[in-house]
């Protein structure tokens, strides 16, 4: 069995907090695609995503010492930081209006730009994809609207045309089921 990847990431984060530039480079090399992929998926704009990814890692460099392993894994800390930063960007007024227009034109099917989509398809193993898909459309849809579109749970309920309580339940149960499904996976 290979060592848990988060153990290594945690070590790299700790070293980064101590000012170790090599550790920071390693951390970037082992997580950059993960972070950037998430940021691209949220922003749908390669130029903006590039900026945000860079901001995320600068923030990692500067705040690595705030990583607390008792509050979650290093990977989760990193992705939380990246997601928050990307969503903040999305929610800024300008970005929001741009995206609203984009949304009108693509209806309810998320359509990443061709480059991203192509790469995604190349990288997406069936097994990887299945965890979210297995949740079934209502839960998957609620989770993806919240996580990738940067909507609040209130906005999710509006977008889906369901009561707020229903949206909350789908988000919560979807996440719990996802957690249970992932339980056995590395």
């Amino acid at each position: 069995m290979s060592p848990p990847p988060d153990l290594d990431l945690g070590e790299l984060l700790r070293a980064t907090a101590g000012g170790d530039q090599q550790a920071f480079a390693l951390l970037y090399d082992s997580t950059g695609a993960r972070v950037h992929g998430l940021v691209v998926r949220i922003l749908r704009d390669h130029a903006q995503a590039e900026e945000v990814t860079q901001e995320v890692y600068l923030q990692v460099w500067r705040t690595a010492s705030s990583f607390d392993p008792t509050r979650g894994s290093a990977r989760s800390w990193l992705l939380t930081l990246a997601h928050r930063r990307a969503v903040d960007r999305v929610r800024s007024a300008q970005a929001q209006s741009d995206r609203d227009q984009a949304y009108e034109s693509r209806h309810d099917r998320p359509a990443p730009d061709p480059t991203a989509e192509e790469v995604e398809h190349r990288m997406q193993g069936q097994a990887v994809r299945s965890a979210v898909q297995e949740l079934g459309p209502p839960h998957q849809e609620a989770l993806e609207l919240a996580y990738f579109e940067g909507l609040t749970h209130r906005e999710v309920s509006e977008r889906l045309g369901v009561p707020l309580g229903t949206a909350k339940t789908r988000i919560r149960d979807g996440l719990r089921r996802l957690r249970d499904q992932m339980g056995g996976r590395a």
Partner: peptide, 19 residues
């Protein structure tokens, strides 16, 4: 930890200039 699973499969290498 479950949220981490949501972005599984979306990996995309950042442009080389970023590094």
């Amino acid at each position: 930890e479950a949220v981490v699973g949501l972005s599984d499969g979306h990996e995309l290498a950042p442009p080389p200039g970023v590094r």
